[in-house]
Lab assay of single mutants.
Amino acid sequence: MDVFMKGLSKAKEGVVAAAEKTKQGVAEAAGKTKEGVLYVGSKTKEGVVHGVATVAEKTKEQVTNVGGAVVTGVTAVAQKTVEGAGSIAAATGFVKKDQLGKNEEGAPQEGILEDMPVDPDNEAYEMPSEEGYQDYEPEA
């Protein structure tokens, strides 16, 4: 019985440690998101679009440190934060509304985080759909 109880105690310690790591990862992701939003706020009209992409990228980098179902929630929060940063930029006159959601080359930025393969159960990952990809044929 002692062996059984000791095993359960060790398992509990492992769960607590994993929860603490997840909590730490979420806190880091939130900190990076805040950094990115402050970065966007300090940019001029020309830099705002690039700044919004930076927020998304920093958040995406930190999301990889967070495991399990938390990833889905962090990704949703990050996307809403990026959308909010863009709205703030438009409201303050840093950028025109028609410039939001495009990178410096004018290509749409939507789907940055949505296409990231995420499995809350950590069982399997699927690649994003290939609808947006084109076949590449090298020139002879």
Rank of each mutant, 00 (worst) to 15 (best):
A27V: 07
D2M: 05
M127N: 07
K6Q: 01
A19L: 10
E126R: 12
G68H: 15
T33L: 11
E20S: 01
V26G: 01
D2P: 08
Y136Q: 08
D119H: 15
M1E: 00
V37W: 07
D115Y: 07
A124L: 14
K21F: 10
K32C: 08
Y125D: 05
A11Y: 08
V66W: 09
T33H: 00
G41D: 01
N103E: 04
S129M: 09
Y136N: 13
G73A: 07
A85Q: 09
Q24K: 15
F94R: 15
V16Y: 14
E35R: 13
L38E: 05
P128D: 11
V63M: 06
V71P: 04
G68F: 08
T64W: 07
G93I: 05
T72P: 06
D119Y: 05
S87M: 12
E130L: 10
A11P: 03
T72S: 15
K80C: 04
N65T: 02
V118T: 14
K10C: 01
G14A: 11
G93T: 05
V37L: 06
P117L: 06
V63F: 15
G84E: 04
T59W: 06
P108F: 03
V74F: 07
P128R: 07
K58R: 12
P120R: 13
Q62M: 02
E131G: 09
P128C: 03
E83V: 07
D121G: 08
M5C: 00
A30W: 01
A89Y: 15
I112H: 11
E61Q: 06
G41P: 01
K96P: 05
E28S: 13
P108D: 00
M1Y: 00
E35K: 06
P138V: 10
A11V: 14
A19K: 05
D115H: 08
P128I: 07
V15G: 09
E46L: 10
V70R: 00
T81Q: 04
G31C: 04
E46D: 13
Y133L: 03
K60N: 02
L8V: 08
M1D: 00
Y39T: 07
V55N: 05
I88E: 00
E105Q: 10
T54D: 01
E114W: 14
K102I: 03
A56N: 04
A90Y: 11
A30Q: 03
T22S: 03
I88T: 01
D98H: 14
E35A: 15
G14D: 07
A91I: 12
V82L: 08
E137R: 15
P138H: 12
G36N: 09
I112E: 09
G41T: 15
G84L: 08
M5W: 14
G47V: 14
A124V: 13
S42N: 03
Y133S: 05
G31F: 15
P138L: 05
Y133V: 03
S9A: 05
K21G: 00
A107C: 07
A19M: 09
N103V: 03
E130V: 10
K102S: 00
A107I: 12
P117S: 09
Y39G: 07
V3K: 01
G132N: 11
A76S: 04
K12H: 09
V63P: 00
K97L: 15
G106F: 09
I88M: 08
L8D: 06
T22W: 12
K60P: 01
V49P: 03
L100N: 10
K32D: 01
V63A: 13
V37G: 07
S42G: 11
T64H: 09
V70E: 15
K60E: 03
A91V: 14
K43V: 11
E104R: 00
A18E: 05
F4M: 11
V55D: 00
E61H: 04
T33W: 03
H50T: 15
V3I: 06
G47S: 12
V82P: 01
V16P: 01
V37C: 01
P108I: 10
V49S: 14
D135L: 06
A19H: 11
V55L: 11
G73Y: 05
G86Q: 10
A56G: 12
A107P: 15
T72H: 09
E126L: 12
P117A: 11
Y39D: 01
N65P: 05
E137A: 12
V66I: 08
T64Q: 11
P120G: 05
V16C: 13
Q24V: 15
E104L: 14
P108T: 11
V15C: 10
V48T: 08
I112P: 07
E57P: 01
A91E: 03
E83A: 08
T22L: 03
A27L: 11
E130C: 12
